[in-house]
Simulated scan of single mutants.
Amino acid sequence: MFILKSTLREFTTDGCLDLAASLTYRMVLAIFPALIALVSLLSLFGQSGTTVTAVLDEAQGTVPAETWDTVQPALESILTAPAPGVGLIIGLLIALWSASSYVKAFGRAMNVIYEVPEGRGGIKLNVQMYLLTALLLVLLTVALMVFVLSGPVAQAVGSAIGLGIVAMTVWNIAQWFLLGFVVIFAVALLYYATPNVQQPKFRWISIGALVAIVVAVLASAGFFFYVSNFGNYNATYGALAGVIILLLWLYIINAILLFGAEIDSEIERARELQAGISAEEDLQLPARDTKASDKKAKKQREHLERARNLRRSAGHNRHGAVADHRELSG
């Protein structure tokens, strides 16, 4: 009960709903660069065309019609564009740089949740976030490859390589476990690598991550069901209905991810309190790096000292002016 109440309080105090809105903005900006990078990765294996077509076919039946009508032209334009030839690596790096904006923003939100300033220097932080973004894109590539190998695609592949019905049935079940593993690993990486705190250990699945994943799946299913059957966004937003629905869904997902992170943070606080550690106000997890935060704190102290000197000099000048006025009056 303490952890639940503390999580709800900190979720509000940390402004996680506002942070989720910021993450949604960053995610929208990062989606298309990430897709470009994804197509570039798939093109290395000669799979961009068939994989993208299969993903678009599957996605059409799962998302609301308004959203699909809005994003389909942009998706087809980006995903079906031929991958760059000589400039493949350059294009991939540029797309990776753009897509990393969400990961960096998620790290800043995690620092707020864990009550720690960012202490990693600009070069170190960017390298870590770029590597993490690249790893997440690789995981997304694997997830897409697993996702498209289902239904008619899986049957066609199975017939081509001589797999029987039993083997295809096993694969159709196993693929969901593989997709679940990819999602769990991706969330675990976000929770572990983005904040400037040294976690006690890397956990494949934490309580907060488990809650976030389960709630995100249920919330997505409920939201899409509501939009498809009861929501009438076209009447309110007109041509922008699809965009609004997409933004609302991404906002819900980001808010849930931050709530899961708050759960892990408050569980850690409870553990520290039970161990006799003073964690009522701040968690006592060590920072990954303090170089940048120490430098920033030093500059802040120097600025405050200059401000104090300015105030003191102003007071000294004022007292001197008063004394001179008294001498002239006398």
Rank of each mutant, 00 (worst) to 15 (best):
I3F: 00
K5G: 02
L8A: 15
L8W: 11
R9L: 13
D18W: 14
D18A: 15
S22L: 15
Y25G: 06
M27H: 03
V28H: 04
L29F: 14
S40I: 07
G49A: 14
T51I: 13
V55H: 00
A65R: 13
W68H: 08
A74D: 00
L75M: 11
L75N: 02
P84M: 13
I94T: 10
W97M: 04
K104M: 10
A105S: 15
M110E: 11
N111P: 09
V116H: 01
E118H: 09
G119Q: 00
G122S: 14
A134E: 02
V146D: 08
L149W: 02
P152I: 06
V153P: 01
A154P: 04
I165C: 00
W171C: 09
A188K: 01
Y191G: 04
A193N: 07
T194N: 09
R203D: 09
R203A: 11
I205V: 14
I207R: 07
A209N: 07
V211S: 05
I213K: 02
V214C: 01
V214G: 05
V215H: 00
L218M: 11
A221L: 12
G222V: 05
F224M: 15
F224T: 15
Y226N: 06
S228E: 14
T236V: 15
T236Y: 08
T236P: 01
A241F: 03
L248Y: 08
W249G: 05
F259P: 03
F259N: 02
A261T: 12
I263Y: 08
S265D: 00
Q274V: 12
D294C: 00
K295R: 11
K296G: 00
E302C: 00
R306S: 13
A307S: 06
H316W: 04
N317S: 15
A321T: 10
E327Q: 12
E327R: 12
